[in-house]
Design a binder for these strands. Structure first.
Length: 443
RNA sequence: GGAGAGGUGCCAGAGUGGUCGAAUGGGGCUCACUGCUAAUGAGUUGACCCGGGAAACUGGGUCCGAGGGUUCAAAUCCCUCCCUCUCCGCCA
């Protein structure tokens, strides 16, 4: 949620910034209006409550003075005020619901530096990185031999490390099954990434199923209920990302200034129904109902969000560089930004087999938007005041797409796939996965 | 899964219908005393919402696990849910 105080006091600037992401001026005016209404009704209600409180105290006093006549008079007065209170409370709550409904749907105020645009077409490519040429700001010329232009689902079957048919038998489409060296490589990726991050980030293994309230506090419910898996008997929900448990860890807490920033990393499975994209990318590892991901999450002081943001992005990139994958960094435009984010950088890896850029990470700064919703605050050591923290997170990284990119990028003419050097120690020394029979090498 | 006990402020812990935002102790902070530390004494010490004020501060409301109810009045009575602890059963 955005800060209503700021909206009241400085509407112009907020209007302008929110307009960049398509929020209409009217919806903001409506919110301001509804908020005014709420405050006026609540102050009337509170005044009436004060009156009843006073009367009730008088009743007690009258009884102590053994003046039951006076007591009765106060009771009568209080009773009739009570009837009025009922009505006012009702109105106040209705007004509040109305305001909250308007409030909840207002997305976060974008970073003034976020590129302005209306759709993903206008996302800005900040830089490219290629294992041979390093960084560049223009698209590097990269040629792929024919034997690299094989889709990972074919490679996976050729190497006998992916088994989509059996996975579908068990669970339906868009559930993966990794086998042998494939299963091990997935484990290697997780171990490698966690080992990279735990120098600064506390390793967490949170629950994979959370209560409804937890999903609500990160905004995944009620709006996106169709995208989540629910275990009905217990009303538990499968987490779509580790961001859900990690953000809720400090829910309703006041953190100590000295404890910030709190940096955490977690490897978890992620579950998504992908209801909105039925039929898209049903083949291979591009879009799955279940996948593993290593996440970075930070609670930071508002003044220090920038360095944290840079650090998360740097770490996510670092993993890709160490794996030797060709990727690009996108600065998401205001129209493509997620509702809670102020600024987001996406990392996309190039997969030559499917000839696509695959989003493998999304690094976001949420300002105090999530913290306000989840009520996560800290006491500032300097002025002793309580403020909301800033939350930031980044996937580092989503494995199936990285897995796909590794298969497609490191396939050789003989159909074998070279394992990235950094993973070899985690693979028990295995540095290459060989096809089970001849292979389907092109060229 | 069965039986029982319990959830109160930063912590411990009192409080069974009105004078309770809440005793008492500990901790924290401030001041005094002290060469330093320790000890001692005095004071102070919650969050949220709305209003007034430049600010210090101040008026009102809410909060005693959560949500409902009874009542003029609820930490206190009733209902539902959540959580914790103990014992038994079961289990990786």
């Amino acid at each position: 949620m955005i800060d209503l105080h700021t909206l009241r006091e400085n509407p112009k600037e907020i209007f302008e910034l929110l307009e960049r992401r398509g929020v209409s001026r009217d919806s903001l005016e409506d919110l301001v209006q509804a908020d005014r209404q709420v405050r006026s009704l609540f102050s009337k209600r509170d005044a009436l409550r004060a009156k009843i409180n006073d009367l009730s105290k008088e009743v007690g006093k009258a009884y102590r003075d053994k003046n039951s006549e006076l007591a009765q008079a106060h009771i009568d007065a209080s009773k009739s005020a009570g009837v009025e209170l009922e009505l006012l409370s009702q109105q106040a709550l209705e007004a509040e619901h109305k305001r909250n409904a308007l409030w909840m749907v207002i997305p976060n105020i974008p970073d003034p530096k976020a590129p302005i645009g209306s759709s993903e077409q206008e996302n800005l490519v900040v830089r490219y990185w290629h294992p041979e040429n390093g960084y560049s700001t223009v698209l590097p010329e990269v040629e792929y031999s024919g034997y690299k232009k094989v889709a990972h689902w074919d490679i996976g079957i050729e190497l006998d490390i992916l088994d989509f048919a059996r996975a579908a038998k068990l669970s339906g489409s868009m559930f993966p099954m990794f086998k042998g060296s494939g299963a091990r490589m997935l484990r290697a990726l997780t171990s490698f990434a966690l080992d990279q991050h735990t120098d600064e980030f506390l390793e967490i293994r949170p629950p994979s199923f959370v209560r409804r309230e937890t999903m609500i506090s990160t905004g995944h419910l009620p709006k996106f209920a169709d995208d989540a898996y629910q275990i009905e008997a217990d009303d538990l929900w499968a987490i779509p990302t580790a961001e859900v448990p990690l953000t809720s860890m400090a829910r309703d807490e006041i953190l100590e200034d000295g404890d910030l920033p709190i940096k955490m990393t977690a490897a978890t499975p992620c579950y998504r129904r992908e209801a909105g994209s039925a039929g898209r990318d049903t083949r291979g590892l591009l879009r799955l109902h279940e996948f593993d991901k290593v996440e970075l999450m930070v609670y930071a002081k508002p003044d220090h969000y920038r360095e944290t943001f840079d650090e998360i992005l740097r770490r996510a990139e670092d993993i890709l560089q160490k794996l030797g994958l060709y990727y690009r960094v996108l600065d998401l435009c205001t129209g493509d930004l997620g509702a809670s984010a102020r600024r987001t950088f996406d990392l996309e890896v190039f997969a030559p087999g499917v000839e696509r850029w695959l989003e493998v990470s999304s690094v976001s700064w949420f300002g105090d938007y999530q913290a306000r919703r989840a009520n996560i605050r800290y006491r500032n050591a300097i002025d002793q005041q309580i403020y909301h923290v800033h939350t930031l997170n980044g996937s580092a990284l989503a494995w199936p797409r990285v897995f796909a990119a590794i298969l497609e990028n490191f396939r050789d003419y003989d159909g074998s796939v070279e394992i990235p050097k950094v993973l070899v120690p985690y693979m028990g020394g295995l540095d290459r996965i060989l096809p089970i029979s001849g292979g389907v090498a092109k060229d």
